[in-house]
Structures are given as structure tokens and as C-alpha cells.
């Protein structure tokens, strides 16, 4: 191999080949994926996030929560995602169309969060999530810096955490979530993929010939 320009052309072609195939190919397929309009509800899905939840997604990214949490439920015959109650259906591309920074995640040191607010039979509420962030649990560290311990002046804040045992603050003090904690929890509570799109209904598993 002696021809320098030809060599360069070759590596450029090799790169363009994989880029065109994977990136342009999938863009052609999904780049213009619209929301799904449900005539019965007169609503289109997925719903857009409220403003505070969009702020919370930035907090989720800043803290790199995606190092331990995924946001993708796999289909029922693939792992225990559905059996663990993370969602009743697999995640589909349409779930993510309004997300500014999609964070599918690649590691499950903690549970999947795709459908955190839509879990059945019981989804966590804001107080549960605040306590979890403050105290940590199992493999999850505590995020104390998202909270402030303040003296109670006048009445106790409505947002103050209800803590028990060794976590209870000194008498006369309260633990209050910061703005970032509130945004993060609002984001987590906006994670809801319970709506069934036509493409997300699982194919019947008992008939292997059906694709």
C-alpha cells in the first residue's frame, strides 16, 4: 500500500459507511416520530413534562444518576423487568420524543426508573423519595447535600422531612429539601409510561410464528 490519498479516502469511506448505516439509517426511521393522538381521550401521548420536572431532569443529569439507574423497560421475556413491576410493557422509542437529554443508562446498580410514578400496585410519593434521597438505602448513598438543616422559626415548614430514629434532627431544627431536591423529585414523579401505544402492545408469546 503506497498511495497516501487513496488510503485516506479508504478510512474516510469506512467511517462514513458505519455512520451512514447506523446514524442516518436510524434517523430516517425515527427522526420524525410524532406523538400519538388518542381520539378517545382527545389527548396526544407522551405528555410533555411540567417545567419543574424539566429542571429536575437537569439535576438528574448533573448528579449522573444514570450511572446506576436505567430508564428502559425490556419486554416481558427479556429479563425480569416486567416481573419486578417496573412497567407493564416494554419501553418504545415514542416514550422519549420530548426528552431533551435521553438517559437510557447502562447499569442497574439500582432499579429502573422509566415508569417510577406509574408503578402498580403502589408508586412512591414525594415524601418517600425525599426520605430515600436523604437517608440512602441498601446500595444507594445518601444525598445529604440536597437538604438543609434549619432552625424552626415560627411554624415548621410544610416541606420538612418526617424523619424517625437516628435521622431525626435536633429539637428545634428541621430538615428541608433544597430547590434542587424538589426539582429532582418532581422529575422522578413525572416518569410515567403507563399509556399503551399500538406498537408497545407485546406480541402474544404463545404463538412463535407471529413476529
Amino acid at each position: 500500500m503506497k498511495n497516501g490519498p487513496l488510503f485516506l479516502l479508504g478510512i474516510l469511506a469506512a467511517l462514513l459507511f458505519s455512520w451512514a448505516g447506523i446514524v442516518l439509517g436510524s434517523n430516517a426511521q425515527l427522526g420524525a416520530l410524532p406523538a400519538y393522538y388518542d381520539a378517545n381521550d382527545s389527548l396526544s401521548y407522551p405528555r410533555r413534562q411540567p417545567g419543574i420536572a424539566a429542571e429536575g431532569q437537569i439535576v438528574y443529569r448533573e448528579l449522573l444518576c444514570s450511572s446506576c439507574h436505567t430508564q428502559q423497560v425490556r419486554r416481558p421475556d427479556f429479563g425480569s423487568d416486567v416481573a419486578r413491576g417496573w412497567g407493564e410493557r416494554q419501553s418504545v422509542a415514542r416514550d422519549y420524543i420530548y426528552q431533551a437529554a435521553v438517559q437510557l443508562g447502562a447499569s442497574r446498580n439500582g432499579p429502573d426508573l422509566t415508569n417510577l410514578a406509574g408503578r402498580k400496585p403502589s408508586a412512591p410519593d414525594a415524601a418517600d423519595l425525599m426520605n430515600l434521597l436523604y437517608a440512602g438505602q441498601g446500595g444507594m448513598p445518601a444525598y445529604r447535600f440536597l437538604f438543609e438543616t434549619r432552625r424552626i422559626v415560627g411554624q415548621e415548614s410544610a416541606a420538612a422531612l418526617r424523619l424517625t430514629g437516628s435521622l431525626r434532627p435536633r429539637p428545634g431544627c428541621q430538615v428541608v429539601p433544597t430547590r434542587r431536591a424538589q426539582e429532582l423529585v418532581a422529575y422522578l414523579l413525572s416518569l410515567n409510561t403507563t399509556y399503551d401505544y399500538p406498537e408497545s402492545k407485546p406480541a402474544p408469546a404463545q404463538n412463535p410464528e407471529q413476529k
Binding site: 455512520w19 446514524v23 436510524s26 425515527l30 422509542a93 422519549y96
Partner: peptide, 14 residues
């Protein structure tokens, strides 16, 4: 100029 939805994950993987 981030691409749309899950395409981000595809480009990231690439």
C-alpha cells in the same frame, strides 16, 4: 444540535 429522542442513545453508542 441533539438528535431526536432515542436517536441520542444510538449516536452515543456509535
Amino acid at each position: 444540535a441533539p438528535v431526536h429522542g432515542v436517536l441520542q442513545a444510538i449516536v452515543e453508542g456509535w
